[in-house]
Write a protein that binds this DNA or RNA. Sequence first.
DNA 1: TACATTTACATAAGTGCTTATATAAATACA
DNA 2: TGTATTTATATAAGCACTTATGTAAATGTA
Lengths: 317, 317
Amino acid sequence: MDALRGFGELGLGSRLKRVSEFVMKETQIVYDHFNIDFDPYLFPIFKIISNKDGVTNSEIQNSLQFSQPAITQALNKLNNKGLIIYKTDKEDKRKKIIYLSNKGQITLETLKPLWINIDKVIKEYTLESSSSLIEHLNALENKLNKKSFSKTIIDNIKMEVVQEIKIINYKNEYAKDFYKLNVEWLKTFFVVEPYDEEVLSKPETYIVNKGGHIFFAKLNNEIVGTVALMPIGNEGLFELTKMAVSPNHRGFKIGQKLMQYCIDFAKNEMKLPKLILYSNTKLENAIYIYRKYGFIEIPIQENSPYKRSDIKMELVF
Amino acid sequence: MDALRGFGELGLGSRLKRVSEFVMKETQIVYDHFNIDFDPYLFPIFKIISNKDGVTNSEIQNSLQFSQPAITQALNKLNNKGLIIYKTDKEDKRKKIIYLSNKGQITLETLKPLWINIDKVIKEYTLESSSSLIEHLNALENKLNKKSFSKTIIDNIKMEVVQEIKIINYKNEYAKDFYKLNVEWLKTFFVVEPYDEEVLSKPETYIVNKGGHIFFAKLNNEIVGTVALMPIGNEGLFELTKMAVSPNHRGFKIGQKLMQYCIDFAKNEMKLPKLILYSNTKLENAIYIYRKYGFIEIPIQENSPYKRSDIKMELVF
DNA sequence: TACATTTACATAAGTGCTTATATAAATACA
DNA sequence: TGTATTTATATAAGCACTTATGTAAATGTA
């Protein structure tokens, strides 16, 4: 079937190229999956720039052994993406010294955990003793065919993220995160009504001071998700609401982690008999999750508190 | 220095690409050195065509896992070089069945010994046990930096060729080779005079029947070089002359092999006391070789037999 | 048997490299 | 101190691929 493999050492050149292209393409999938505007071929140059505090085109060329125009072209790409800035050397006006821009710094921080995991997975695929390079390439290609490289990396990263997520209580300093996350979410699916504005901008007044609770999912000092338990009326009825996850961090099951925490808290700490929530049937995924955690649909009253809600659910402990 | 190496497994993609490109480029040098109009990237496709008796574009694509346009484009290149021919399938008129052309067959035969040696040298560079792919690439790149890959292959091939060269006696069937090789050589450096034409087209009359000898260097059924011992006058004086090597086979020391054989023959078989030769001082390399084999410059007579000669040399046994 | 789908190959345009060459500043040298 | 050489970077064009799409023949299906 695979002729190239049959050629043995003779096809080494084409073989290396094929594996290289495969690895690059899979890495691209990883970057794309996490919505990072970055290309695998830019990695060596970007890494060098981030390692040193100011480098020139020719310095990069020396450490990479690519052609000088290749460096210039890649730098143009990085510049177009806004990841680097140029400063002309004062001593030697031919030189352009290259630094990471602010956006570059931020991208670097997002890339770092990916790189750690890419490195880890490549090691997983390639740390194996063999008696020849071709044999090694055979083993690697076998593994790549058997188990998706990009998926393995993505799963690793997600697992890591999930482990690092901490659920924490409301503090004043998180008020703006609470607002931002919820407004972002509302804008995506509905419209932000005046009452939303009011509640979301004063969470302390409307939720915490009324005996409610707000929780946050924190990942490396960044608030990436939130949820609230808000009292309804005066009979000890609580609503699970204001759940939102940062768009850059969807797919990590952060919402489910928040929900689990919320349910446990309501049941064990607050000793509530039940929880209710309002949602909309067009949010199929959300409703699926609610059901998964035991919520059951109940009749919705005529004048429900939210215009956008057309379904009411209940979880009895 | 080498940043890419410093990145470890993380830079695997770029790393593989770099090594691939290096190997390809070095292989190109080998093909160029032997004046073969062929590119390393065409190898996989050309090899598949030569292995099977008639293949289609899509069959090649299946066995190589390249994109279909990549195959079409490479086939166009092979077709432009005249190495393949297309025949439309009679059953299915969409299909173009691909065969090697006559030229393709010949090129294949010239390539085969190169491929054997390329394979051998790559094995030499890569048959080494290591515990990870990166480690293996490190070892390979170290070797590639230390010892020229292309030169090693070329040297291997030359050695093999030299071993396969046989020096044989004159036969009628070689008359045309004798003519062709000498005229080719004369045209390069001088002009072919009427007397040359006469002697070269009738070697039997002018050399063999007069007690002279003609020797040929034969490589795989091909005559690639010649030299003659021609009598001068009637006093048993012999001239080493008509030495020529095929342009495609220069650099294999075929000339030296012919010369050594000639000298040994003159000394041991013909029991000659000495040999003379005429040459031209502008042929510096030739004269260097003559000196190396013991020829010493002697005064040249006024009316030397060749207009083009300005130096006469002698080897006394 | 007609028409939609699939298959085989070709073409077009884009990408990340390459080599060759241009441009402008710095340095060497007479 | 002026001019040639070297150095740093940019631009242009080519190359071996890619993806997207086109074209024509064969096949499946109603």
